[in-house]
C-alpha cells in the first residue's frame, strides 16, 4: 500500500513544471492570445522532446501506470495553461497506437510523437460533425464512436473538410465543429478500446482542471499576500482570507480523487469508470468556480484581458464541457446507480 506518486512520476512532474514555467510564462501566453490562438508549430515540436505525446501510445502490460503517468503530465499542462491540443493529441495517439492493422499506424505515431503533426480528438458518430479542439491547427482527427467502438482517422488538411462554427472562447484550445471529408484515412473497430479511451479522456481532463484550479488558488494567495489596501496586505482581511481558504479546501482533496481514478484505470479496479466519470464532473466544476472566485480576489485587474486569470477561467470553461458536460456525467452516474437499484435488505448497512 503506497498511495502516492512514484519517484519517477514526481520527477516528471517537476521537469514539466520547470519547462512550462520557462516557456509559457505570462508574456508568452498573452502573445499567444494576441496571435489569435494559432498553434506555434515550432514550439509544439520542441515540446514533443519531453516525450509527452507518447505517454499513452504504446500498448503495455496491464498494471503499468499509463493513465497515471499521462494524468501527472496533464496536471502540469493545466497548471501552466499550455496552449495546444496536448490532451487530445495524447488521446489520438492512444487510439492510433492500438489499431490492429499496421497500415500507416507507425508513420502517424512517429509524426505525432515528434510534434511534426498535430492531432485533434473527438467522440462522435460516423458522418456526424464533431466539436474538435484545435481542429484548425490539426492535421489529423481521430473520432471514436462510444456506442459501437469504431475508430476513424481523418485527414483535416484535405479538400472537402467542412469547418462549421468556431468556438474560440478558450484561445489556448480554440475548438471548431468539423465535418470530416469521407473516406477517412482509416476506419477500424477495435474491441474493448472505447471504454478505456472514454475513462482516460475523463481522467486527463480532470487532471488538467486540477492543475489549473490549484494554480488559481496559488495566484489568489500570492496576490492577497502582496496587494496592499488600508495600509496592509488584503490577505490579512478575514473576509478575503476565508474565501481563499474555502477555495483551497474545495480543490486540494480532489488530487487524491484523480490519482485514484487514473490508478484504477491502470490496474482495472471495478470502480474505475465511475470514479473517472465523477472526477471529471466535480473537478471541472470546481475549476470553473475557483476561477471565477479568483477574478474577484484580484479586483479590477482580475477583470482585465491583460491579467492571467481569464486565461485559466476560460480553460476551466473548456474543461467543463469537453468531451462531455458535467451535467451529462452526473446524469450518467446517477442512471448507473439507479439501474443497480436497491440492495436486498440486510446486505448493506
Amino acid at each position: 500500500m503506497k498511495f502516492d506518486l512514484s519517484d519517477e512520476q514526481k520527477q516528471m512532474a517537476e521537469t514539466l513544471d520547470r519547462y512550462f514555467a520557462a516557456v509559457w510564462d505570462s508574456q508568452r501566453l498573452h502573445a499567444h492570445l494576441a496571435g489569435g490562438g494559432v498553434l506555434d508549430r515550432a514550439g509544439w515540436r520542441k515540446m514533443s522532446e519531453l516525450g509527452l505525446f507518447y505517454m499513452v501510445s504504446e500498448p503495455t502490460q496491464p498494471g503499468d501506470p499509463l493513465a497515471l503517468d499521462a494524468a501527472v503530465c496533464a496536471e502540469q499542462v493545466g497548471r501552466h495553461a499550455v496552449p495546444g491540443p496536448v490532451v487530445p493529441q495524447m488521446l489520438a495517439m492512444a487510439a492510433i497506437g492500438r489499431l490492429q492493422s499496421a497500415g500507416h499506424r507507425d508513420t502517424w505515431l512517429a509524426a505525432l510523437g515528434s510534434g511534426d503533426a498535430v492531432a485533434s480528438f473527438a467522440f462522435g458518430k460516423a458522418g456526424a460533425p464533431v466539436l474538435a479542439p484545435c481542429a484548425r491547427d490539426a492535421d489529423l482527427l481521430v473520432i471514436v464512436d462510444l456506442a459501437d467502438g469504431h475508430i476513424w482517422v481523418h485527414d483535416l488538411k484535405r479538400d472537402g473538410v467542412a469547418f462549421g462554427a468556431d468556438r474560440n472562447l478558450d484561445l489556448t484550445r480554440r475548438a471548431s465543429v468539423v465535418a470530416p471529408a469521407d473516406p477517412p484515412l482509416h476506419a477500424e473497430h477495435v474491441p474493448g478500446l472505447r471504454g478505456w479511451l472514454r475513462d482516460l479522456s475523463r481522467v486527463l481532463v480532470a487532471a488538467d482542471a486540477f492543475g489549473g484550479a490549484s494554480r488559481c488558488v496559488e495566484m489568489a494567495t500570492d496576490y492577497a499576500s502582496s496587494r496592499q489596501q488600508f495600509g496592509q496586505p488584503i490577505g490579512r482581511f478575514q473576509g478575503l482570507k476565508f474565501q481563499i481558504a474555502d477555495m483551497a479546501v474545495e480543490v486540494e482533496p480532489w488530487r487524491a480523487l484523480w490519482w485514484y481514478a487514473a490508478h484504477a484505470i491502470d490496474v482495472g479496479r471495478p470502480d474505475a469508470s465511475r470514479m473517472a466519470c465523477l472526477a471529471k464532473a466535480v473537478i471541472t466544476e470546481s475549476y470553473a468556480s475557483v476561477g471565477r472566485r479568483t477574478v474577484e480576489v484580484f479586483g479590477g485587474i482580475g477583470f482585465t484581458w491583460d491579467a492571467d486569470v481569464h486565461i485559466f477561467l476560460k480553460r476551466a470553461m473548456f474543461d467543463l464541457v469537453w468531451p462531455q458536460t458535467a451535467h451529462a456525467l452526473y446524469a450518467e452516474a446517477a442512471e448507473e446507480r439507479a439501474l443497480a437499484g436497491i440492495p436486498v435488505a440486510g446486505q448493506t448497512a
Binding site: D4, P253, A256, A279, V282, A333, A334, R337
Partner: peptide
Amino acid sequence: IDDAGVARDLCQLEARAAANQFTQYRILS
C-alpha cells in the same frame, strides 16, 4: 434520483466522500 438536482448532489457527495477517503490514504502513505 429522477430529480436532476438530487442526482447531482449525490454524485458530488459520493465524489467528496471518496476523495476524503483517498486523501486519508495519501496522508498515511
